[in-house]
């Protein structure tokens, strides 16, 4: 049977469909104060850090070299948000294990793939609008501030919309990676450490691989693919943003797939 027919059977029986699991996971996500706090701090860092730096730039009378330069300056809070929301992602999965509530969840929804997908969809659909609005506010504020420094920046400038969307997907992606690592490792500390390892340690380790192979492997690392997606220094060496986005999304799919496999195989 395909998932669609299984869903139909479940819906008629009043059982768990993917849509219902998503609704359930959204309730769980909103039901914890820690979620709200992490999201608010992430929003604050996106909205404040970039524009504050823009103010510094203007005060110090340093020029901005083009729209790309301005974007990376104004959106610099996104990397902070990525860490914070990555940890939130970790917690959304490991909270289930910390109190063994995963057993309640899996008795309600025995098709564990639906739980993993439902949780991923809930996290994505909750974060994407919030982050998108935050980066837009940061850009509008930063643009106005830099205008005082003499830079003429608009919404229709090349790369602006792409960058705002890509930055949102970058931040939400780290949250999804954190969630997948949470499913795989089941411990908050373990998964958060692994997440930071993927973010900061893995790219450094690839520098140890000698020659051209090292460069290629380095470019294909998760963090580098993500960084390529939001680069503004094109053309230059390394992946172009489209390729980066593609590889980044592929990695997210693999991580969620691994989480599905692991939860299906293990005893709860």
């Amino acid at each position: 049977m395909t998932t669609t027919t299984l869903d139909t059977v479940a819906r008629r029986a009043g059982g768990p469909t993917l849509r219902r699991v998503l609704a359930s996971e959204l309730l769980k996500l909103r039901g914890l104060r820690s979620t709200i706090v992490l999201v608010l701090v992430a929003v604050a860092s996106v909205v404040l850090l970039g524009p504050i730096n823009a103010v510094g730039q203007v005060v110090e009378d340093e020029p901005v070299h083009g729209v790309g330069d301005a974007l990376s300056l104004v959106l610099m809070g996104a990397s902070n948000a990525a860490i914070l929301l990555g940890v939130l992602g970790v917690l959304t999965a490991t909270n289930e294990y910390a109190h063994a509530s995963v057993r309640v969840t899996f008795t309600a929804v025995p098709r564990r793939a639906d739980v993993v997908l439902g949780k991923a969809l809930a996290l994505t659909s909750a974060l994407v609008p919030v982050v998108l609005v935050s980066v837009a506010i940061a850009w509008e504020a930063g643009r106005r501030i830099l205008h005082h420094g003499g830079a003429d920046l608009g919404w229709t400038d090349p790369n602006v919309v792409r960058m705002l969307v890509a930055t949102t997907w970058y931040v939400a992606g780290w949250a999804l990676l954190g969630q997948s690592l949470g499913w795989l490792l089941r411990s908050a500390v373990g998964a958060a450490s692994a997440l930071l390892g993927v973010m900061f340690v893995l790219p450094v380790l690839t520098l140890l691989i000698p020659g051209k192979a090292g460069d290629t492997v380095g470019e294909l690392m998760v963090s580098e693919a993500g960084a390529a997606m939001i680069r503004t220094d094109q053309p230059g060496p390394g992946l172009d943003p489209m390729a980066g986005a593609l590889i980044w999304t592929l990695y997210l799919g693999l991580a969620i797939g691994a989480a599905v496999l692991a939860t299906n195989r293990r005893d709860a």
Binding site: G15, R20, S24, E25, L27, G31, A108, V109
Partner: peptide
Amino acid sequence: HLRSLAATLG
């Protein structure tokens, strides 16, 4: 807690 469980049943 109960509402998140009830949601899976619609």
